[in-house]
């Protein structure tokens, strides 16, 4: 047993909240969860203006970056920009997922196969419009009955 239940959320900087919403909700199927600190006095106190989204069991707080963040090279599709988030899709849905990225005009790398001895099957790699790296994969352990991530509703 680990001494950590789960990763409950990530705060990620983006350049444009509307652009991020169109990407995460429109292409990846995220749901808008809530807008936080849109009240002026909070921002004056230095609190981050962010909109949060749920993507499956995960909560993303997309935070408005205070200044333009250097972007990774356009042709670099797999990498980390501080971090990379990977989301699981069912193996049976993997081809449809790739087709969906193609249809949306999102450049991606892959599918890349992982070693048989590990829990991951195949991955595709891409970026959000603000240069945050993302990954979609199917997992060999998709039918294992892991404990569910507790739903916290914060962030």
């Amino acid at each position: 047993m680990a001494d950590v239940e789960t990763l409950s959320h990530s705060g990620i900087s983006v350049h444009d909240l509307k652009e991020a919403e169109d990407f995460y909700c429109g292409i990846l199927g995220a749901q808008v969860h809530g807008a936080v600190n849109f009240v002026t006095e909070d921002t004056l106190k230095g609190r981050s203006v962010h909109q949060s989204y749920t993507l499956g069991d995960f909560l993303f707080a997309l935070v408005l970056a205070p200044d333009f963040m250097p972007m990774p090279p356009a042709d670099k599709l797999m990498g980390v920009n501080g971090f990379r988030h990977a989301f699981a899709v069912r193996h049976a849905d993997f081809d449809a997922t790739i087709a969906r990225l193609k249809a949306a005009g999102v450049p991606f790398k892959g599918p890349v196969g992982h070693p048989d001895k590990g829990p991951f099957g195949e991955s595709v790699y891409f970026k959000d419009p603000s240069g945050n790296f993302l990954e979609l994969l199917w997992r060999r352990d998709e039918n294992v009955d892991y404990a569910k991530a507790p739903q916290l509703d914060v962030g």
């Binding site: 990763l7 705060g11 990620i12 963040m69 920009n81 501080g82 352990d141 404990a147």
Partner: peptide, 27 residues
């Protein structure tokens, strides 16, 4: 304790926090 994983990848140089970003963290 759930199916969530962390993958640590060794590279020669690391930029942990993107320049000009804010509030980047994982919980």
């Amino acid at each position: 304790n759930t199916r969530q994983r962390v993958l640590l990848v060794e590279v020669p140089e690391v930029v942990a926090i993107r320049p000009n970003s804010s509030s980047i963290h994982h919980a």
